[in-house]
Amino acid sequence: MQCLWCNEDKARKTTKDGYWVLPDGASTVEILQVPALECADCGLYIEDEINEEVENRLHTSDLTHYSNVFTYEELLKAPTI
């Protein structure tokens, strides 16, 4: 698979855990198993479109019944506001 940063065929699909700031700006959540790419030269990173999807979901989902740690799949299944 081609790396988005170096354009070499050294990338592979994987997952990454990451932290995002909630829309209130005062708290964060840890989201587990977010789709990511890992390049032998560039390292592990989340694509912009996945990051944007997470940001959009954080703004439009009802997360009141979630702890501050949940999976990407749980975020996708969260009810909308």
Rank of each mutant, 00 (worst) to 15 (best):
R57V: 05
T28A: 08
D9K: 09
I50N: 00
V69M: 05
T15N: 04
Y19L: 00
E47Y: 05
D48V: 15
V54D: 00
L32C: 06
P35W: 00
C42M: 08
Y72M: 02
D41W: 07
M1F: 01
E49S: 13
I81G: 00
L75H: 04
E53A: 09
S61H: 09
E74V: 05
E30W: 09
Y19M: 02
G43M: 12
G18W: 03
E53W: 05
Y19P: 00
T60P: 05
E30T: 15
R57I: 11
N51T: 10
E38M: 13
L4V: 04
G43A: 13
E8I: 11
V21W: 04
D17S: 13
L58T: 05
S61Q: 11
R12Y: 07
S61T: 15
N68I: 03
G43N: 14
T64Q: 08
C6D: 12
M1P: 02
R57E: 10
P23E: 12
V21F: 01
E52M: 07
E38K: 12
W20G: 02
N68S: 08
P79V: 15
L22K: 14
Y72S: 01
T64G: 06
D41M: 06
E52R: 05
W20S: 03
I31C: 00
E49T: 13
L44W: 06
A40G: 04
L22R: 14
Q2I: 13
T28W: 03
L76W: 10
P23A: 13
T14V: 05
K13F: 08
T80K: 14
E8N: 13
L32H: 05
L58C: 11
T80I: 14
G18N: 14
I46Q: 02
I46N: 03
K13D: 10
T14R: 04
A78H: 08
C3M: 09
D17L: 07
R57W: 10
L63D: 03
L75I: 14
T71S: 15
S67V: 06
Y45S: 01
D62I: 12
V29D: 04
Q33R: 10
D17A: 13
T15F: 06
L75W: 04
R12G: 03
H65R: 15
I50P: 02
C6P: 05
P23D: 12
S61E: 11
I50H: 01
S27C: 00
N7T: 14
K13E: 11
E53Q: 07
